[in-house]
Structure formats: structure tokens, C-alpha cells
Simulated scan of single mutants.
Amino acid sequence: MASQRVFQLGLRRAVAPSFRIQPAGRMVQRRFAATENAAQSDGTQILAKQRLQRPVSPHLSIYRPQITWYGSALNRVTAVVLSGSLYIFGISYLVAPTLGWHLETQSMVAAVAAWPVAAKIAAKATLAFPFFYHSFNGIRHLAWDFGVGLGNKTVIRTGWTAVGFTVLSGLYYTFLV
């Protein structure tokens, strides 16, 4: 569409002098570039000088951190932790008979029962907090997929709600279950 408009304007300008009429529409600004032949090394130097004169776009350092940043990053980290743990355990379970490891349920229950209480709590917390955060944030993202809760205040509120539910659920499953 735009190319047709440019073509029509150009055609009108070309015909206008012969009929002594003014062309309709806006004037197209023309810039004539000065060109010269330069060696490759000279071109590289010119480009380097031009890059020094360019303004630097704002970086993350000028922005105030927000729950959406941390929520997005934490959601990805928890996904990696949970899926990585699953893959490591799954591969270990598959190669256990070959290596002589005992990863059947009875052996694992007996091994964990022998752990000190602090190690049990640390293991439960290491799995509970990422699991619950990823679950609650996943529900939040599913709501966004349906177009629910996309306002700025709602996004912030649901982000902190996911964090709150994660803390409560993580503590409950770490210490009481």
C-alpha cells in the first residue's frame, strides 16, 4: 500500500511540470549521501569512531527491580531445579542395577531414616519450596493465558500472593508433614 502511494506521488511529480499543476500529497524528503571509496581498514576505523558517538541505551542498572522480574527468573530457576532433579534421579534409577546401587523404595526409606533431622529438613525444603513456587506461579501464568489478571496492580498482587503461598506451603510440608 505504501509503495503504491509513493509510486503515485512520484508519477504526479513527474507529470506536474508539463501540466503546470501542483502535486497533491506530502513532499518526500530527500537526503543525498556523500560517498567515497575507502579501504576496508579505513571503513573499520570510521565505524569504530561512529560507534563511540552513539548514545548508550539504558541498562538494567537504571530500572527499579520489580516482583515480575524476580518472579519470572525464579520460575525458570525452579523449573530447572525440579526437572534437573527428576532427570538425575531417573537416570540414576535406570543405571542402578548395572552399577549395583539399591534405589528401590525400601532401601531409600531406610537410608533417609538414618539421616539426622537437619538433613531431612534441608532435603524436604530443597524440594518443597521450588515445587510450590513453580506450581503457584504456573497457575498464575495459566490465568494470564486466558487473559485474566494482566493489569499492573493485579500482576504485582498475584506475584506476592504466589510468594506468600509458597512460603506457607513450603514451611508446612517441610516441618509438619
Rank of each mutant, 00 (worst) to 15 (best):
V6T: 11
V28K: 15
T166G: 00
I62H: 07
A162P: 01
F129H: 00
H141R: 08
A73H: 13
S18C: 14
G159V: 01
T174E: 00
K153W: 13
L99S: 13
F165N: 03
V77N: 08
A24C: 10
L11F: 07
P97N: 14
V80F: 07
A114T: 02
L86D: 09
K153N: 15
G164D: 05
S3Q: 13
L52F: 10
A2T: 03
Q50I: 12
A79L: 07
A38R: 05
S3D: 15
Q45K: 15
L94N: 04
S3A: 15
E104L: 11
S57M: 10
G100M: 04
R76K: 14
R31N: 12
R5D: 14
P58T: 12
R51S: 10
V6A: 15
A125Q: 03
P130A: 00
R140D: 10
R31A: 05
D42C: 05
I88H: 02
L9A: 12
V167Y: 04
R157F: 09
A110R: 10
Q50M: 15
W160I: 02
G10N: 12
V15P: 02
S3Y: 12
S92H: 00
P58V: 06
F175H: 05
A110N: 14
L74Q: 10
S92R: 00
G90A: 06
A110G: 13
A96K: 00
A14R: 11
A33H: 07
F89R: 03
S85D: 07
P130S: 06
G170Y: 01
K120I: 09
A118V: 07
K49D: 12
G147L: 00
I156A: 05
I67A: 08
Q66R: 09
A38V: 02
L82Q: 08
A48W: 04
P23Q: 10
R140F: 11
Q29R: 15
E36C: 06
D42Q: 12
Y133K: 07
Q50N: 15
L11S: 03
H59R: 09
T78V: 12
L150W: 06
I121V: 13
V15E: 13
V77L: 12
Y87I: 14
V155H: 06
L82A: 06
Q106E: 15
Q40N: 12
P65A: 01
H134L: 02
W160N: 01
Q106N: 15
Q8Y: 05
P58N: 08
Y70I: 14
M1Y: 07
A143D: 08
K49Y: 13
G84R: 06
L176N: 02
Q66E: 11
G71N: 01
T35K: 07
H102V: 02
F7A: 14
T174P: 01
V112D: 11
K49P: 05
K153F: 14
T44L: 03
Y63P: 02
S72K: 10
